[in-house]
């Protein structure tokens, strides 16, 4: 059975590998060029950690050239799962139904379930490997730019988070199985492709909006009421606000922040004192620390993987169904 599916998937496989080889070649070339620019601008130390000497002209020029390209590379990692779902997952069964060859497959001695399992595995494995390899190559490029590139905004910035860890593979599995079940249910390649793209994008947007609630955030407190947020760039800020003297969250601090008419003789308002007199005691920020990025990756991936399992079961039902 493996050979049959392999023979059928050969053009898809060749396309995948060719696409990967070309993109990896381009990225490695750019990566080498970028490393050269870093040396030429004497910026190598800024990659590790931004310090005062990093704000100069050399850094600006470097970022003008490379920042958007690095960002775009992250974007392609985000797009890869959708491509796999639309071009590998959706036609997998839909094409058989369209060509009528499902009738050939269904009238051989091997069971439909085995046929389905072979198709699922043989088509999925190369696609997942390609996505994984591409993700690592892009990431190795981002690492070279370090804090001068998009990684400076921390692991939770959406292009960084979604292009890192187990996420791309989980999205790919989701998109691929979604395409597969849509094809098995609707039996039309074009319908399956359109549905896969639409539903995949919708699911990604919906889940990226709620994933921060999957983890209990850590509360960071600060007595500095008027200062900047106590949290540096990096951690994911879920919520922020003020606590009153009893340590309870102030639901609506706006009236307590009204300091009109509180200015002193020089006409300067001491907001710190004013807030405290109004009853605000502490400032809080609920964050997901950088160390918990992996946990959040795994939590979100498990949701996508759960859907993928449902889609596989749906495919089994659709293919085994007798009309």
């Amino acid at each position: 059975m493996t050979w049959i599916v392999w023979r059928q998937q050969r053009p898809v496989f060749i396309t995948l590998v060719a696409g990967l080889v070309v993109s990896v070649a381009v990225i490695l070339m750019w990566r080498a060029g970028m490393a050269g620019d870093l040396r030429a601008g004497n910026l190598e130390a800024c990659v590790e950690k931004i310090f005062d000497g990093c704000g100069g002209k050399a850094a600006d020029e470097f970022q003008d050239v490379w920042f958007d390209r690095l960002h775009a590379a992250q974007g392609t990692v985000l797009a890869a799962p959708a491509l796999i779902g639309v071009f590998v997952g959706a036609p997998l069964f839909a094409r058989e139904y369209e060509q009528g060859t499902h009738a050939l497959a269904f009238t051989q001695s091997v069971s439909r379930t085995r046929w389905m399992a072979a198709k699922f595995a043989v088509a999925a494995l190369p696609a997942l490997v390609v996505v994984l390899v591409y993700q690592f190559v892009v990431h190795s490029w981002l690492d070279v730019a370090g804090d001068l590139g998009p990684l400076a905004t921390g692991p939770f910035y959406f292009t960084t988070f979604d292009a890192q860890g187990v996420s791309p593979v989980a999205y790919t599995l989701f998109a691929y199985t979604l395409g597969m079940v849509a094809g098995a249910l609707f039996k039309r390649t074009l319908v399956a492709m359109t549905l896969t793209l639409g539903l995949f994008i919708a699911a990604r947007i919906a889940l990226s909006g709620v994933r921060e609630f999957m983890i209990t955030p850590t509360r960071v407190l600060s007595d500095d009421l008027d200062g900047r947020s106590p949290v540096e760039r990096g951690p994911l800020v879920v919520e922020s606000g003020f606590l009153d003297a009893r340590g309870a969250v102030v639901a609506d601090p706006t009236p307590m922040m009204n300091c009109a008419g509180r200015n002193d003789a020089q006409g300067i308002t001491d907001f710190e004192v004013c807030y405290r007199e109004n009853g605000l005691a502490q400032r809080f920020t609920d964050v997901i620390p950088v160390e918990q990025a992996t946990t959040l990756h795994l939590l979100e991936a498990s949701v996508f993987a759960g859907f993928a399992v449902l889609f596989v079961l749906g495919t089994v039902w659709a293919v085994r169904r007798q009309v």
């Binding site: 009738a103 009238t107 091997v110 439909r112 379930t113 007798q322």
Partner: peptide, 13 residues
């Protein structure tokens, strides 16, 4: 059944 065709049967449409 929907599992697969009987192995002693061949079908040509």
């Amino acid at each position: 059944s929907g599992g697969g065709m009987h192995r002693s049967v061949a079908f040509l449409t």
